[in-house]
């Protein structure tokens, strides 16, 4: 399985992450990422037939907390690092093509 990262894939991933890359950067990252992927592909040498996929690397499950209220941050503290605010809201550039909402 040869999955060397090509330039097109880097462009796509950059777009998904809303990163604006220059020609030079695209060139640089394509090479770097290809090297990383090639290195990782060493793992393909392992025989994994019949091995269950691992959902999590820790041998731990069912870590819960009770539904109990804890103090939140003061609004001033919550907004302290915000680049901009309006009243008690975070102020951000207008959202174009709004597909927000979970």
């Amino acid at each position: 399985m040869n999955q060397n990262i090509n330039r097109q894939q880097v462009e796509r991933v950059a777009h998904l992450s809303r990163l604006d890359l220059t020609e030079k950067e695209l060139e640089l990252f394509s090479g770097q990422l290809a090297a990383v992927v090639e290195y990782i592909q060493k793992l393909n040498e392992l025989k994994t037939n019949g091995v269950e996929p691992l959902a999590h690397c820790l041998p731990v499950h069912n870590v819960f907390r009770n539904d109990a209220v804890k103090p939140s941050l003061a609004t001033e503290d919550a907004l302290a690092n915000a680049p901009d605010r309006t009243d008690d809201f975070f102020k951000v550039p207008r959202i174009l093509d709004d597909s927000s909402g979970a």
Binding site: T86, D87, F89, F90, K91, P93, R94, I95
Partner: peptide, 13 residues
């Protein structure tokens, strides 16, 4: 998100 600020949006989390 509320969009009543022209070029900006106000966010309540």
């Amino acid at each position: 998100n509320t969009h009543e600020l022209g070029n900006f949006s106000a966010v309540d989390l």
